[in-house]
Simulated scan of single mutants.
Amino acid sequence: MSPLRLLLPALFALAIVAAPSAASAQSFSDGQRGEIETIIKSYLVSHPEVLEEAMAELNKRQAAAEDEKHQASVAQNSNAIFNSPRNVTLGNKNGDVTFVEFFDYNCGYCKRAMSDMLDLMKSDPKLKVVLKEFPVLSEGSVEAARVAVAVRMQDPGGSKYLDFHQKLLGGRGPADKARALAAAKDAGLDVARIEKDMTSPEVRATIEENFKLAEAMGMNGTPSYVIGKQVVVGAIGLDGLKEKIGLARCGKATC
């Protein structure tokens, strides 16, 4: 909706004052409508700041509506988001705030966001971190995600998964099956078992679950996050993430 659409009721009221012979909007003649349009145009030219005010109000309302939609979606899917047995869970597993990241191994922003996640884990001992594979960029991303799920199946505690995750996401070049298996080998995992597990129903179910959750919350890119009740789409940097964690923890950017 354009900002002008928000202004029309007030501006038509103003125009009606200037054209008292018109009893209602339905009774306006073509000539009267032309006069009203002239009044509106003249008003906007004389007061262009009104458009800025209308746009600011529109953005505010849209953001509030989006926040409400996100919170409802998080509430409806909370168990799968925060406590799914298919999650990779790191940090403080009993933490007071859960930080969920949806990522793609071929996402350049995810590579940079990984250091933010690691910094948060080091600096915030009360933070629970959940990683969810969300391979949206390429077939190589899907292959890498399938290896990652097989790694999680082999390493439910997450220590080797984190090593694998850093090696693959932090490596150079596009991620695919070959690079993912090489990273798993470097992390000390059983590659033969991974190749076997990659064909299991659990791998498909995990990726499908993550895609369904992302769709339900309107996530259309990576990285995307759920932090408390908040949904965040896109890389917002370490300070932005800390602010979201603070809001989830105590209702303020800094607790």
Rank of each mutant, 00 (worst) to 15 (best):
S2C: 12
P3Q: 03
L4C: 07
R5G: 09
L7V: 05
A15F: 00
I16W: 07
S21C: 12
A22G: 09
A23W: 03
S27E: 13
G34A: 11
E35N: 03
T38Y: 09
I40R: 00
K41T: 05
M55R: 13
M55I: 08
M55Y: 12
A56Y: 03
R61A: 14
Q62S: 06
A64W: 08
S73F: 04
S73N: 15
V74H: 01
V74S: 04
Q76M: 13
Q76H: 13
N77Q: 10
N77A: 10
A80G: 10
I81Y: 00
F82V: 04
S84E: 11
N87G: 11
V88L: 09
N92A: 10
G95T: 03
F99Y: 04
F102Y: 06
D104C: 08
C107G: 01
G108C: 08
Y109E: 11
K111D: 04
A113T: 01
M114D: 09
D119G: 00
L120Q: 03
P125C: 06
E133D: 15
S138P: 05
S138V: 04
V142L: 14
A145Y: 05
M153Y: 05
D155H: 05
P156Y: 06
G157M: 12
G157F: 03
G158P: 04
D163R: 11
H165K: 05
L169T: 02
G170A: 11
G173Q: 12
R179E: 13
A182F: 14
A182V: 12
D186S: 15
V191W: 15
M198N: 14
M198S: 12
M198Y: 10
T199G: 15
R204K: 15
A205N: 15
T206K: 13
I207R: 04
N210C: 07
F211H: 10
K212A: 15
M217K: 12
G218H: 13
S224K: 01
G228T: 02
G237K: 09
L247D: 02
A248F: 02
C250Q: 08
K252C: 05
